[in-house]
Simulated assay, not measured.
Amino acid sequence: MTASPRIPHQFQHQSLSLISSLLPVSNAVFFLVEPGMQHRGAVIFNGCQDMEKQYTQKYNTMDPLSPDRFRDKDTRVATLDSQIAPHLLKQSRYYQEFMLPNDHRYVADLFFRHGGTIVAILSILRAEALGNFTVSELELLNSVQPFMEYSLNTVYLPRRQQERQGFHQQYQLTERELDVLELLISGANNKQIATELNLGLATVKTHLHHIFQKTGVQSRAELVSRSLQRLQAG
């Protein structure tokens, strides 16, 4: 099997590919949700990192589909228009400053839970020209959500935790160093790692220096190569 820099996020990439094959999509984002409802490990389909950065740093609390609003609900799929009247949406800062400049108008979110707690969200974005989600499309999304949630909880998340635990046991990496390594393996550069983890560039470089020391490598390329070999073997 050929090594892929996307190995740690394969499930997210494959899920986005599946959704985009089932219905028209302008952009889509699949991200994990921490207990505090923060985004982590976002994988983007047909979009840019800047959009995700804008959202997480400024606009997420304005979002009518923010996961915090669904914390105590069992909703599987929700659309933006089901949460706010269109005329009120278009008057909002969220629409004027974030949605409109990024050319999306319609949104449908799939919520994935573990033990009743939201652990991941797949957000499907559409430009105005694609139109709103139809009843049949929402029925389709509701039908695939349980399988995706089951796969997330029984395959992807346990494997991800097992892989992180393996690196920790072998190299004594801290949780933050594991975060940096995971993003590095996925192809992120220092600036992207800093943005994703809300760290300064100097701090990212310090973490990388410690990872190099603990793993006994001399370069990023050697670290990525060794890590991918370990992941594929295990």
Rank of each mutant, 00 (worst) to 15 (best):
4 S>H: 06
4 S>R: 09
5 P>F: 10
8 P>I: 05
12 Q>W: 00
14 Q>S: 13
15 S>R: 05
21 S>D: 11
23 L>N: 08
28 A>L: 05
32 L>G: 00
36 G>F: 02
41 G>W: 12
42 A>I: 04
47 G>Y: 06
48 C>E: 14
50 D>A: 11
52 E>T: 09
54 Q>S: 11
61 T>V: 09
61 T>Q: 13
61 T>H: 10
62 M>W: 01
63 D>E: 03
64 P>C: 01
64 P>H: 02
65 L>C: 05
65 L>G: 04
65 L>F: 03
66 S>W: 07
67 P>A: 02
67 P>K: 04
68 D>G: 15
72 D>F: 07
75 T>P: 00
76 R>D: 06
78 A>V: 10
85 A>E: 13
85 A>M: 06
87 H>G: 00
91 Q>N: 11
93 R>N: 13
94 Y>K: 11
95 Y>A: 07
95 Y>E: 07
100 L>Y: 12
101 P>I: 08
102 N>R: 02
104 H>M: 11
104 H>P: 04
104 H>S: 05
108 A>D: 04
113 R>A: 07
115 G>I: 05
116 G>R: 01
118 I>G: 00
122 L>K: 00
128 E>K: 12
129 A>T: 10
129 A>Y: 10
131 G>V: 09
134 T>D: 09
136 S>A: 12
142 N>I: 12
145 Q>C: 13
145 Q>V: 14
148 M>E: 06
149 E>Y: 08
151 S>I: 04
151 S>T: 11
151 S>W: 11
151 S>F: 11
152 L>Y: 01
152 L>R: 04
153 N>E: 08
154 T>P: 02
156 Y>C: 03
161 Q>L: 13
161 Q>G: 09
164 R>P: 06
166 G>C: 10
167 F>Y: 11
171 Y>H: 14
171 Y>R: 12
173 L>P: 10
173 L>E: 09
173 L>I: 09
176 R>P: 06
176 R>N: 13
185 I>K: 05
186 S>Q: 05
189 N>Y: 11
189 N>E: 13
191 K>V: 14
193 I>T: 08
193 I>E: 05
194 A>V: 05
195 T>Q: 15
196 E>Q: 14
197 L>E: 02
200 G>T: 13
202 A>K: 12
202 A>N: 11
203 T>I: 07
204 V>G: 02
207 H>K: 01
207 H>F: 07
209 H>Y: 06
210 H>M: 06
211 I>A: 01
213 Q>Y: 05
215 T>P: 03
216 G>I: 03
217 V>K: 04
217 V>E: 03
218 Q>I: 03
222 E>Q: 13
226 R>Y: 02
227 S>I: 00
228 L>W: 01
229 Q>S: 14
232 Q>Y: 15
233 A>D: 14
